[in-house]
């Protein structure tokens, strides 16, 4: 066999194998996706993980300006996500995720473990802002924050406005860094919700629980 033919035969797989990396099995129709803006974690009394997603709602061809939240439980995050997708009959789309919220019942150790898995999830941006709350995450995401259409976006914008230094909004990557270093250099922003459903940013305090 000639050298050139050999080279071509060797190069062909290199050229065509990458085609397997992408393909129509990954495609998502826009009508079949639910755009997740905020993701909240709570632990139920039964010890299950309760996932709450704040979705961008669309009506009559436009942004309705109101959020809609759905909640599902599961043994693991994956199980809860599957339950949510089944409930919505849509695939969850994480490209616009702008809030991660650890709510009631999520211990510091749970939060650390979840932070790691979230960081390893390539669908989730490591620069996603991270918050915690002593109230249920589901209640926070179902509440309303001032004039903001979406609680998640309103909260992030409020923190950005209040930011006096150049460190940026506390995010998933920041939290992981603190866990690795074992030193709490920055506080996790904390939010709460009152009985009227109004969400508020709590005063800064020690983030250790």
């Amino acid at each position: 066999m000639q050298m050139k033919t050999k080279q071509v035969i060797l190069l062909m797989p290199l050229l065509f194998l990458p085609l397997l990396l992408a393909g129509c099995w990954d495609k998502q129709e826009l009508r079949d996706i639910a755009i997740v803006l905020g993701l909240g974690f709570d632990c139920t009394e039964a010890g299950e993980l309760q996932l709450t997603v704040e979705l961008a709602q669309r009506e009559n061809g436009a942004d309705s300006g109101e959020s809609v939240c759905f909640t599902a439980c599961g043994e693991t995050r994956q199980a809860a996500e599957e339950a949510l997708e089944q409930l919505l009959d849509k695939q969850l789309f994480w490209g616009n995720l702008s809030l991660l919220l650890f709510g009631q019942g999520v211990s510091y150790s749970d939060m650390a473990a979840m932070t790691l898995t979230l960081y390893q999830d390539d669908r989730i941006n490591s620069a996603t802002p991270l918050f915690r709350s002593d109230d249920p995450a589901a209640a926070v995401l179902n509440g309303h924050f001032g004039e903001a259409a979406y609680v998640s976006q309103g909260l992030v914008q409020a923190v950005e406005r209040d930011q006096r230094d150049s460190t940026g909004v506390y995010c998933l990557a920041d939290h992981l860094e603190q866990l690795v270093n074992g030193v709490a250099e920055r506080e996790v922003p904390t939010v709460g919700v009152n009985e009227a459903g109004e969400v508020y940013l709590e005063a800064k305090r020690d983030n250790k629980r």
Binding site: D26, Q28, E29, R58, G61, A62, D63, G95, N96
Partner: peptide, 28 residues
């Protein structure tokens, strides 16, 4: 962009496109 790389579409545009798509009978 619509099928595989929705992340590159700005949020408001994505939302409005998704709303438009959801009311049509055919795929994009």
């Amino acid at each position: 962009a619509v099928y595989y790389h929705q992340q590159i579409i700005p949020f408001n545009l994505l939302l409005s496109m998704a709303a438009g798509e959801s009311s049509t009978p055919f795929s994009t």
